[in-house]
Design a protein around this nucleic acid. Structure first.
Length: 446
RNA sequence: GUGGGUGUAGCUCAGCUGGUAGAGCACCGGGUUGUGAUCCCGGUUGUCGCGGGUUCGAGCCCCGUCACUCACCCCA
């Protein structure tokens, strides 16, 4: 059989990269649980009508089909598709289990999602998302829109990643403003403003005209979009535009509260940016997009917002707020750039050398003693010359090699070799797990 | 889905107007009868993406196809 070529858009990491990924996932789990978020996993498939509701027909969903499906089977059921995000499955889960859940319900969910789009740099067809959401029944207190992004920023701060900056806007603010300057359909304006970074104001202006805005109205929207600030000062600049509207006032007030809290609890990491739009139309309040220092061209690596109508069963509605971290997008870019590696490609801390095959048993005994004290240990695969055995460890980044013959242990980094007893020798605490190295020059969190 | 670019060794690539496939790195063995580097010597590695066509002859030209990649779209 010919060598298979990798499938584009379905990333698979090397062992060392997987070690980095697991470190990231462990850290996210730790921080999320520190804040009391419960872990959840939902099935990979949803009924097609669930995935495609809200008229988002252009969603590229992978459809699930039995190889031996009978003719006509397809017509009888709604059909199944792989989920393309974790929010829709979560909303479905909440509706289905509302009677068994305690509200407000806080959960995190780290799973693969699938999108049938053309892959590109930073854009995959199968990728890992790490979501956290808070949902409540009927009404969700506003302060969750303040608290949730701070949890995510805390998680980023605990990770060896380039500096993350979260840019924040508010749908009420935008919608109130757009209506007040003459837009009948604020979502059209939103979509136009969303393209601002990519195509520039000259090309956005006609789109705003298409949305029904006068020249003055379009100018006002562009002026609004140009406002950004790392603190609450943006509000004065918005008011200086002279537009008044009750919804705009509410949105302004909310965004000020988000910025005030962030200034205190995550200074510099959260910025008000009134051109942040978000394509998805179900957001109703604060919206978030996050950019990675030095990799802004990648687009947002962590986005979300407040939603009111995503889950509703007719009797009750379940408003929520959540964000999703694009784990694969972040890691794929940093791996490719050589900006994030593990100090070794295996978990092994100690390689026990083998003198000859007759004495493999004593090497196994040394390894067992070390493992018994929590030290990840493997035994050399063959009784090759010691130079070979050392190289086996060196190639993998294993820091220590144990020689059972004279009961010594060698630190490959320094070359020092000392007598040691398997019953009590212990490596430095830091050697028990691989280090995560981020050799880039940009600012990092840790 | 639309439009560009690229497919040659494990990796990065060279290959002239069409004339029997190369380099560097990597890898393996030895120099070195049990301790990593360097050095020296030697060695392995290919359906030139795939299929067809033109030609005495195709890695090179033509057609098709597949894959990868970039942009649009959309978004993590």
């Amino acid at each position: 059989m010919a060598r298979p070529s990798p499938l584009s858009g379905f990333p698979e990491w090397l062992p060392g990269e997987r070690i980095v990924e697991q470190h990231v996932l462990d850290t996210l789990r730790r921080v999320y649980e520190l804040h009391g978020f419960a872990s959840l996993e939902t099935r990979a498939v949803e009924p097609m009508d669930q995935l495609l509701r809200k008229g988002e027909i252009d969603k590229e969903v992978y459809v699930l089909r039995r190889l031996h499906a009978e003719e006509g089977d397809a017509g009888q059921s709604p059909g199944l598709g792989l989920h393309f995000d974790l929010t829709v499955p979560f909303a479905r889960y909440v509706l289905e289990r509302a009677g068994h859940l305690e509200f407000p319900f806080r959960r995190y969910q780290i799973q693969k999602v699938w999108r049938g789009e053309r892959p590109q740099d930073g854009r995959y067809r199968e990728f890992l998302q790490a979501d956290i959401d808070i949902v409540d029944r009927d009404a969700l207190a506003f302060h969750h829109e303040v608290d949730l992004p701070l949890v995510v920023l805390e998680a980023f701060a605990a990770l060896p990643l380039p500096l993350m900056t979260m840019r924040v806007n508010n749908r009420k603010l935008a919608e109130g403003f757009y209506r007040a300057v003459g837009a009948d359909d604020p979502s059209l304006v939103l979509r136009a403003i969303d393209k601002l970074d990519k195509i520039g104001p000259v090309k956005v202006r006609p789109l705003l005209a298409d949305a029904g805005l006068s020249a003055a109205g379009a100018q006002a929207c562009l002026d609004l979009a140009s406002i950004s600030s790392p603190d609450a000062s943006f509000a004065d600049r918005v008011r200086a535009l002279g537009v008044t509207d009750p919804l705009l006032d509410t949105g302004l007030e909310e965004l000020v509260r988000v910025l005030d809290a962030a200034a205190e609890r995550a200074p510099g990491r959260l910025v008000a940016d009134l051109k942040i739009a978000r394509g998805l139309d179900y957001y109703t309040g604060t919206v978030y997009e996050t950019f990675m220092a030095g990799h802004e061209d990648l687009g947002s690596v962590c986005s979300g917002g407040r939603y009111d109508a995503l889950a509703s069963d007719g009797k009750a509605s379940y408003p929520g707020v959540g964000v999703s971290i694009g784990v694969s997008r972040i890691l794929g870019r940093l791996f490719k750039a050589g900006a994030l590696t593990a100090s070794r490609s295996v978990p092994t801390t100690v390689l026990v050398a083998v003198d000859d095959e007759e004495s493999r048993g004593s090497s196994n005994a040394v390894a067992a003693a070390l493992r018994g004290r929590g030290i990840p240990t493997e035994v050399a695969p063959s009784a090759a010359k010691f130079g070979k055995q050392i190289r086996h460890a060196d190639r993998r980044g294993i820091p220590w090699v144990w020689f059972p013959g004279d009961s010594t242990v060698k630190d490959l980094r320094t070359g020092d070799q000392v007598a040691a007893d398997p019953a009590d020798w212990t490596p430095p605490e830091a050697d028990l797990r691989p280090d995560i190295l981020s050799p880039q020059t940009e600012e990092t969190h840790t």
